Amino acid sequence: MATENQQDAVMSAETAVAVKPDYGNEIISIIRGNFSPRAMQTMLTDYHGSDIADIMEQLSQPERKKLCRVCGAEMLAEIFEHLEESAAGEYLREMDLPKAAAVIADLETDTAANVLHEIDRERRTLLIEMLPDALRKEIRMIASFDEDEIGSKMTTNCIIIRENLSVKQAMSELVRQAEENDNISTLFVVDESGAYYGAIDLKELITARNSVPLESLISTSFPYVYAHEAIDDCIEKLKD
């Protein structure tokens, strides 16, 4: 039979599990408070981007504008990654162009392209022109596909290496590209013309000896689709 102290401990544990921090109200109180911009930004850094994203629709437009003025582009991008694309597009329209462009530049490329689709053509064109050259090209490429084509859902967050590299060269290329791309579990291989050739599992590359030909690590049966194929067709193909 449990002692009185044991019963109290169980009840305390149950209470601790049941009571969750009310981050939403805390964040709203900070935004609506009379804090200096720096103090407000410092306090908001204690919260995850998803927590702030959850309360965005509860804010008035002036309050959202206040939040966007105070927070840096990197912090706002983290918040926007957790928003519905339609909501993200709406909130971007509330920002001035330079700030909106800075936020887009810090988003994942596929997210940025999808959010830009939610903005009117004139403003979208202005924002794209303000982006860095490399990002502008990537977004234009993704945006060039129709919404029902699988290319509209692709991401450029991946590692791409050439088939004619050595294992050592492939590792060096992985390290170089990993500075910009964190999706590294699978490396995609292209031939000299840039056409898709196959894929390499990260573990296979890391454990391979330098003397092993890279060709022996490449899986040429890795599933793939063409960018202009219909999304529904691709889903069925990948299921098979």
Rank of each mutant, 00 (worst) to 15 (best):
T3Y: 08
E4P: 02
N5H: 06
N5E: 14
A9H: 09
A9P: 02
S12N: 12
E14C: 10
T15F: 11
A16D: 11
A16W: 11
K20R: 12
D22A: 12
D22I: 07
Y23C: 01
G24A: 06
G24C: 09
E26T: 07
I27D: 00
I27V: 03
S29L: 06
R32D: 12
N34T: 14
F35H: 15
S36R: 13
R38F: 10
A39R: 14
M40T: 09
T42R: 13
M43Q: 14
M43E: 15
T45M: 13
D46Y: 13
H48E: 15
H48W: 14
I52N: 00
A53S: 14
M56C: 12
Q58R: 13
Q61R: 08
E63I: 07
R64S: 10
K65I: 11
K65A: 06
R69K: 12
C71Y: 04
L76C: 10
L76V: 09
L76D: 02
I79W: 02
F80N: 02
F80Y: 13
L83C: 15
E84A: 13
E84L: 09
A88W: 01
A88P: 01
G89F: 07
G89L: 04
Y91N: 05
L92G: 02
L97T: 13
L97A: 12
K99S: 10
A100F: 04
V103H: 00
I104D: 00
A105R: 09
A105F: 03
D106K: 14
T111H: 05
A112C: 10
V115R: 00
L116D: 03
H117E: 15
H117A: 12
I119V: 15
E122V: 13
T125R: 12
L127R: 01
E129I: 03
E129C: 05
L131M: 14
P132C: 05
D133E: 15
L135E: 08
K137E: 13
K137C: 02
E138I: 02
I139G: 00
R140P: 01
M141H: 09
I142Q: 01
A143T: 02
D146L: 07
D146T: 05
D146F: 02
D148P: 02
D148M: 06
I161S: 00
R162M: 08
L165Q: 09
S166M: 08
S166L: 07
V167D: 02
V167F: 07
Q169H: 04
S172E: 11
S172V: 02
R176G: 03
Q177D: 08
A178M: 07
N183C: 09
N183A: 14
S185V: 05
L187M: 12
D191R: 08
E192K: 13
A195H: 12
Y196D: 04
A199R: 04
I200P: 00
L202C: 07
L202D: 06
K203M: 11
K203V: 10
E204Y: 05
L205P: 01
T207R: 08
V212L: 12
L214G: 06
S216Y: 07
S219Y: 09
T220G: 06
T220L: 08
T220Y: 08
F222G: 03
F222H: 11
Y224C: 06
Y224A: 10
Y226T: 11
A227N: 05
A227W: 00
D233G: 01
C234G: 02
I235Y: 06
K237A: 12
K239I: 05
K239A: 09
D240A: 11
